[in-house]
Design a protein around this nucleic acid. Structure first.
Lengths: 241, 241
DNA sequence: CGTCCCGTTGAAGTCTGTCAACATCCGTGG
DNA sequence: CCACGGATGTTGACAGACTTCAACGGGACG
């Protein structure tokens, strides 16, 4: 039982830009199937040319790069609406791996089909470019946070990002949002050690800024969090592919 | 006296993918002019919607973000062939500023024209997406270097990148390449203090890996440099827009 | 000749990483 | 049913990489 693009629940989220019925119809033909992936499933692999591209419908995942010395850099957190595999689609090779962290449902597209999309549906091609630009924007922010901020603020930045993004995809309730990652994941994303990440998180908890237990993030003092995170945490509208 | 796309010298560089005469003709119409910019000229501004987009023809520049606390994160180094302003073109707002560091010559395009490009020339639109993917790939590498490596290796990584890229654009001679940036620029790119950057550079010099004087980088021991930089420094072919 | 920018070097302080130990939870197998 | 190992989270002590502060030299430029 696969989701019809026409009725895709993501289209109802305010985060995403409009998407005409005609376009939905085209995307439906572009779509080759739907996929379920359990925690730990490898969806895309760094350095390889995947035959398929995805759009995350539900669940969360992780994008990361492994370095030659065995360390890991997390380059992004996958949330519903994310388009995965653009690099494979247009460059022929992924720069990072993508892995499911929770159970996920994904739209599956054929890599070859992306060319038809560019040739026949310029608005959709534009949407793909738009998503690439959003990704570039995010990575710039991440680089700034990792490069310029102290650990305490890095973590605040990451948590603010999570919460805002969860709001955009309708996963947040009041001041809580699901956060199924491990502290190691956060540490690898921010360029911090696991131990230090843990201690700074404890500090944020002690200071009444937020708490994070059993996979649920709760913001207790949004104002202070945003101040630590350094404003720019408003989440931008984006297209859906 | 403006350059004709048909005869664009960049097309002869091995770094760039093929580009048919017919496509060159279209780009020629897309192009609205040519621009000279001296050192320090602001080309694009973070947070603003620029009416024009650029492709760097010659010279070098800097992409950076300013943070609320006044610190600066350099998110990229502009070299010939780089397309500037994609974010403004498709998202309506730049996530970073771009500034000339040397004298630069740039192709100028109209922001509105990018839509025609998507509508009428899918191969060119694909090239734009390709460039966006290359940029995302680079930022992922940069994030990994900044997040996971010690200072000595970060600098080696950056220098290897510079040299490879200079080779690709035909600016390198033997084992030397122009490097018109300041140590502060490098420090802001790698998330290091100026002082420490200087000391680690001195270390690389002392160890006979490279030297950098008067705006010229010279590699003395490429093997050791690549080892420090962590392989993956091969520069990928890219399209030209 | 003074000023400003850039590069260089030394000393001191601190943020962050490493090492180590322990608690909790959970699935597996005895 | 309980023992066991593995993954995750927590906390303390210590070491060190990196930052900050400070001072100086050289070149470009008005």
């Amino acid at each position: 039982m696969t989701t019809n693009c026409e009725n895709c629940p993501l289209r109802r989220q305010s985060l995403f830009l409009e998407f005409s019925p005609e376009e939905a119809d085209f995307m439906q033909r572009f779509k080759t199937g739907e996929m379920q992936a359990g925690p730990g499933t490898h969806l895309l692999t760094q350095g390889e040319k995947s035959p398929q591209l995805f759009t995350a419908l539900s669940g969360m995942g992780l994008k990361y790069k492994m370095l030659s010395d065995g360390s890991r850099q997390v380059v992004g957190f996958v949330m519903p609406g994310d388009f995965l595999g653009l690099q494979a689609g247009v460059m022929g090779e992924m720069g990072h791996s993508v892995e499911a962290v929770t159970d996920m449902t994904l739209c599956v597209f054929n890599r070859a089909g992306i060319w038809d999309l560019f040739a026949s549906h310029p608005e959709r091609a534009f949407a793909v470019a738009h998503l690439a630009a959003v990704e570039e924007h995010f990575l710039g922010d991440a680089l700034a946070a990792v490069g310029q901020r102290p650990a305490y603020e890095k973590i605040a930045w990451a948590m603010a990002r999570f919460f805002r993004r969860a709001e955009g995809t309708g996963q947040a309730r009041k001041n809580s949002a699901p956060l199924p990652y491990t502290q190691q994941d956060i540490a690898d994303a921010l360029g911090l050690s696991l131990v230090h990440t843990n201690k700074q998180l404890a500090e944020l908890r002690k200071n009444g800024v937020l708490s994070w237990q059993q996979g649920t993030l709760t913001i207790h003092d949004m104002e202070k969090l945003e101040e630590l995170a350094g404003e720019e945490s408003h989440v931008r509208e984006r297209p859906l592919v």
